[in-house]
């Protein structure tokens, strides 16, 4: 139990620190790298509560795909991050003040709450014992049955995201040369090649 607690605090602390570094790092590439660190430590926290599937999905999807894509975007786009940051220092004191007040309030509130070890069992969807049902299977049990509504709703949200991204960014550019495979296949030898009789010593 002590070891578990210690591990939790170490990973949680690293996650929070890395999260802060994401917004405060000077170099945007470093920000993305810290984001990856945050994802990794969060995955470790998932492992700690026995949700291996979520942990692996976090690593595969977020670290493997999302963060790498972020990295591409940051490196490809020509954005002057120093300029974007100019207002940052100006608003930092008031932001920090609000943050500290909020933190103190939350500590006062959450400090009074007691957590019982049985809390995991009385949740809306308790995690079954690993011995009789595997984690991945346990998620599969509920996601397409009990939570089908939320699952389908998430699908609609992703559809909106896709439509939105296309609406806002796709521009039809006329005059772009595209590969038309049908045209390529329909091309015959007679259309493209012309035989000329060249007299010796005259050229065309």
């Amino acid at each position: 139990m002590i070891l578990q607690g210690l591990t939790f605090y170490i990973f949680a602390a690293v996650a929070v620190m890395a999260g802060m570094m994401v917004v405060s790092a000077r170099n945007p590439v470093h920000s993305v790298l810290f984001l990856i660190l945050t994802f990794f430590t969060t995955a470790a926290l998932f492992v700690l509560i026995g949700a291996e599937f979520l942990a692996m999905v976090l690593v595969v999807v977020y670290v493997g795909a999302v963060a790498v894509l972020f990295l591409f975007v940051v490196m490809m786009l020509d954005i002057n991050f120093v300029e974007m940051r100019e207002g940052f220092l100006q608003y930092m004191p008031i932001g920090v003040l609000v943050g500290i007040i909020l933190l103190v309030e939350l500590l006062m509130v959450l400090g009074t709450a007691t957590m019982s070890p049985e809390i995991m069992a009385v949740g809306t969807e308790p995690i079954p014992d690993l011995a009789d049902r595997q984690n991945t299977a346990a998620i599969g049990d509920v996601i397409y049955t009990k939570y089908i509504y939320a699952f389908q709703a998430a699908g609609m949200i992703l559809l909106v995201a896709m439509v939105g991204a296309i609406v806002l960014t796709l521009r039809q550019r006329p005059g772009v040369r595209k590969q038309v495979i049908a045209d390529q296949l329909a091309r015959r030898r007679e259309d493209a090649v012309e035989l000329k009789k060249v007299q010796p010593g005259q050229g065309i």
């Binding site: 609609m156 909106v160 995201a161 439509v163």
Partner: peptide, 23 residues
Amino acid sequence: LIALYMGIELQSLSLYVIAAFKR
């Protein structure tokens, strides 16, 4: 609470895009 969040996000995301529609 989950259905609440899903509904709000579906509505809001569509509205963000519509607001910026005259791109």
